[in-house]
Write a protein that binds this DNA or RNA. Structure first.
Lengths: 138, 138
DNA sequence: GTGCAAATGAGAATGATTTGCAATAAAGAA
DNA sequence: TTCTTTATTGCAAATCATTCTCATTTGCAC
């Protein structure tokens, strides 16, 4: 049997007392399958193939709700509009290819550790962080 | 004699073949004196005390020009509107106090170094980066 | 002082995201 | 299944930050 990758997200919605609508199902399915970091119009495009009635407003509304529930992450790379990705993958940061716009994920435990140390030194408890590297292929 | 902190920025304008107008003078003076990271409306407010004719459009236009010349930095913290700071201080990153919105500057050579290494490992030349820590006072 | 391109203010335009509202449709109850 | 309640939706209008248009002003080189 085919395993539905979107199932855990639907469960999260249900747990939060939210309804699982056709459009949310479609959006989550698309997001769960995405290898990249699509923005809102792109989600409308992709989800529209499954459920044509998905509107831009609903995508934004859904992203807001899911972000509050911690189910997805919203990224705002430099001048671009917001992009989204599911939050099920282990934590990582992003490197943005300045020429292609492509986003590469990476993770550095050392940097994570240093960040926590720096926050503590400054008298703060680290709640979140944003690390983006911008570069060009060499 | 009182040293004009804005002088180097005016020089940069002149070098770039740009005109030193009353409004630019006022904006630069305010930015050079700022201990914080003001946004555009705040710059209008402060510069307006020196030169009342400073408009929002001019602040944005000036910030764009100065950013291109590398004289100032533009920051886009989480959901907020853009904030600015002069680029004369040595490079640093930012820690944002989630409760007060206050911005604390810090610098970590180790992290800078690690970032460069990571970029190289990924096959990229690091052109720029953005590191923001979000935390709460402990 | 003159002349002219650069710069400005005011307000219109833009683009991304949000919101109001009437219509629709989940999901539990009957 | 059908009924009821109320969350969710699409559409279009509204926001918000930022940029642009254009007529007018003003640095500044001569």
């Amino acid at each position: 049997m085919v395993q539905n990758k979107a199932a855990p997200f639907e469960a999260a919605l249900k747990d939060a007392g939210l309804r699982i609508t056709r459009q949310r199902k479609a959006i989550l399915e698309v997001l769960a399958a995405a290898e990249d970091h699509p923005d809102a119009p792109e989600l409308v495009r992709r989800a529209g193939k499954i459920e044509p009635s998905v509107s831009l407003a609903t995508v934004y509304r859904t992203m807001t709700v899911l972000e509050e529930k911690g189910v997805i992450h919203r990224h705002q790379f430099d001048g671009e509009s917001a992009r989204f990705e599911t939050a099920n993958a282990p934590h990582h940061d992003h490197m943005i290819d300045l020429d292609s716009g492509q986003v590469i994920e990476f993770r550095s435990d050392k940097i994570e550790q240093l960040q926590r140390e720096i926050a503590r030194e400054l008298g703060y408890e680290l709640v979140g962080h944003k690390l983006e590297l911008y570069g060009r292929r060499r």
